[in-house]
């Protein structure tokens, strides 16, 4: 009975607390083989904010976004972005090289449902995707039953990273 109680408590706590799978700093270090460059920022002007709002389907609050840019894989940029799934932020680390996604990893998940998006079987689908002219991803992403909003949030962030990458390359 006690074991059952402890298990229930553990299950409950896993549902109700933020799960940080990987510190953003560690993710950035991994993308640059342990030697990350200094962070840079892209300032958001009205035009870029409008594009972001189009992708996110809501206004982006903030005037600048940090990123890391290095010579690996041509010229790669690394982004750590947040988007609300249903009620709370999902933090995703995305590496873009040669205008397509090289790595996408869920770094922190704070919602009570939809955590399945952290799994590799889902995030691997984004690899090699690029942004088409109509601001859609180049391929289809299979959804996850019961994680619709989290899937949607991660897809939005993938598009945002690709969009911002193209902006900083110009």
């Amino acid at each position: 009975m006690r074991v059952l109680f402890v298990l229930m408590l553990l299950a409950w706590s896993s549902l109700s607390h933020a799960d940080i799978y990987l510190e953003s700093q560690v993710f950035v270090q991994q993308q640059f083989s342990g030697h990350p460059p200094q962070p840079q920022v892209i300032w958001l002007n009205g035009e870029l904010k409008a594009k972001l709002a189009g992708v996110l389907q809501h206004k982006y609050t903030g005037l600048r976004i940090r990123y890391w840019q290095g010579e690996e894989n041509g010229l790669q940029t690394v982004w750590v972005l947040n988007e609300i799934g249903k009620e709370k932020n999902i933090t995703v680390g995305i590496t873009v090289a040669q205008d397509s996604i090289k790595t996408l990893q869920v770094l922190a998940f704070r919602e009570s449902r939809g955590w399945e998006v952290k799994h590799g079987f889902f995030t691997r689908q984004f690899v090699s995707m690029f942004l088409k002219k109509d601001m859609q991803l180049s391929g289809h992403i299979d959804g996850i039953t019961g994680a619709t909003m989290s899937v949607r949030a991660v897809k939005k962030l993938a598009k945002v990273a690709l969009l911002l990458h193209s902006e900083v390359q110009q």
């Binding site: 510190e23 953003s24 700093q25 903030g62 005037l63 600048r64 976004i65 940090r66």
Partner: peptide
């Protein structure tokens, strides 16, 4: 008082 950035600090 417009938000510029929210930074996660490690």
């Amino acid at each position: 008082l417009e938000l510029v950035e929210s930074m996660d600090m490690s």
